[in-house]
């Protein structure tokens, strides 16, 4: 359903490969954008979640592992 919306993109503050210890952007400036992004995701979630939550979760039965 959300397939067409998905596009791989670098995360905010994506780090240099190999550790340059790149310091991620300070939270204050990004904070507002983050709130907006989370709001957008919450809007999206109802469409992404599997149908019939209760039944779906009940069906997820695993055998023991290590």
């Amino acid at each position: 359903m959300a397939q067409e919306q998905f596009k791989a993109q670098p995360a905010q503050g994506a780090q240099e490969e190999e550790t340059e210890a790149a310091v991620s952007a300070g939270p204050s400036a990004a904070a507002q954008e983050q709130v907006q992004a989370v709001d957008d995701l919450l809007d999206e979630i109802d469409g992404v979640l599997e149908r019939n939550a209760e039944e779906f979760v009940r069906g997820f039965v695993q055998k023991g592992g290590q």
Binding site: F6, A8, Q9, P10, A14, Q15, E17, A37
Partner: peptide, 15 residues
């Protein structure tokens, strides 16, 4: 992955 696609998690390695 949806969270990551929106840039809400930090990554260390390019895809």
């Amino acid at each position: 992955h949806r969270l990551a696609a929106r840039g809400l998690v930090e990554t260390l390695l390019p895809a």
